[in-house]
């Protein structure tokens, strides 16, 4: 496809554990990112969503991690084959990243202005005056009041929300084509989160940057993304457009996630339906589907064979044996209006 800007193909990442074991954090992840769209990667802690992002930026620590297999195509070129120098050029100017904790992603001993200007200088040649102007413009763009004065301030003089704005300004300094946001609002309060999400949407409209947003918050997904990839135990188990994921989820895990969330607009009497059990240990994954142990619709086959990807529609694919033609029919009970709350899956 022409408009694909980033394509990840069959990515496998492993970590060495202290007792010479191997933790398979990412196992065969593939997805595409189109120009100007927002893709959300959702999953719980340990599902491999952050590792995926870090490995495509090649930011994983060398001592204990390795990308075992797979390709990352950025505009048709495989990033995993790039040298460290070439990669540094890509980082920041073509693909940028925003991390969860804004405090640790800023250097506490440098003024904000200096840090932004340094990023700018690395990738583009500017005169000093121009540089200063550009940095101030960026701060203004992300909504920091009186940017000229604030350039001289150090990170600790900013609040959490303001810091995350600065981080976003730095990430956007060289007009990257892809922005990777790894839990950008998790450390922030709701009202500040709303500001930052708003800012990101706004900036995307202005710059046309494609965004990958990594989060565990389905609310953030619903408000930001056009497409969603749901990760569980290092695999993408379902991908689709937001509407497909939220209104026609096919994977029991996706359904479970939606049913276990309280809805602000739903009646209080609605009972939450939790997913039983706990996620598997990535060091010793069982055979078959990783979700089998917690799945209410589990079948014999799930314990011994991992399901393959099934295309439900052009945009929607899922990895689940229930989609196999031999599987028993799974019935959808749609309540009035088809809201998620009344939707439950049943096995006949």
């Amino acid at each position: 496809m022409e408009d694909t800007i980033l394509k990840i193909d069959n990515l496998h990442v492993s970590f060495k554990t202290h007792n010479d074991g191997e933790t398979k954090a990412v196992r065969g992840v593939s997805f595409e990112l189109k120009k100007g769209e927002t893709l959300a990667i959702v999953g719980e802690s340990g599902s491999g969503k952050s590792v995926t992002a870090k490995s495509l930026m090649r930011l994983l620590p060398k001592q204990n991690s390795m990308i075992k297999d797979g390709q990352v195509f950025y505009e048709g070129k495989d990033l995993l084959k790039y040298s460290i120098k070439e990669m540094q050029k890509i980082r920041g100017s073509e693909i940028s990243m925003v991390f969860q904790d804004p405090m640790t992603s800023l250097n506490p001993t440098m003024t904000i202005g200096k840090q932004i200007m340094e990023g700018l200088r690395k990738h583009q040649a500017f005169r000093k005056k121009e540089l200063f102007k550009k940095a101030a413009d960026l701060l203004e763009l992300v909504g920091i009041p009186s940017p000229m004065e604030r350039m001289k301030d150090y990170p600790h003089q900013f609040s959490g929300g303001m810091r995350q704005r600065v981080v976003i300004a730095m990430a956007l300094a060289c007009n990257p084509k892809v922005l990777l946001a790894d839990e950008p609002t998790t450390a922030l309060d709701v009202t500040i989160q709303a500001q930052i999400l708003d800012l990101m949407k706004d900036l995307q409209k202005k710059t046309g940057t494609a965004i990958i947003i990594i989060t565990h918050d389905l609310g953030v997904v619903a408000s930001m993304a056009q497409r969603v990839a749901v990760m569980y135990a290092g695999e993408i188990i379902e991908t689709g457009t937001v509407d497909e994921i939220f209104y026609e989820p096919k994977h029991p895990y996706t359904c479970g996630l939606l049913l276990s969330m309280p809805k602000l607009h739903a009646a209080r009497s609605t009972k939450l339906i939790p997913i039983p059990g706990i996620p598997p240990d990535l060091g010793q994954l069982p055979e078959g589907c990783p979700f089998a142990a917690r799945c209410p619709y589990v079948m014999k086959v799930c314990h011994s064979f991992s399901p393959s990807k099934t295309e439900v529609s052009e945009t929607h694919s899922v990895s689940c044996w229930l989609e196999d033609e031999r599987a028993p029919q799974v019935e959808w009970i749609d309540g009035a209006g088809g809201s998620i709350d009344e939707r439950k899956r049943k096995v006949d």
Binding site: P276, G277, I278, D281, Q284, A292, A293, R294, P296, Y297, V298, M299, K300, V301, C302, H303, S304, F305, W321, D324, R326, A327, P328, V347
Partner: peptide, 20 residues
């Protein structure tokens, strides 16, 4: 993978709570 594998087969409840 045969047809007879496609039957409901839940693990014993509490199994996933067990510690290795």
């Amino acid at each position: 993978i045969t047809k007879d594998l496609f039957v409901h087969a839940p693990l014993e409840s509490g199994k996933s709570e067990e510690l290795p």
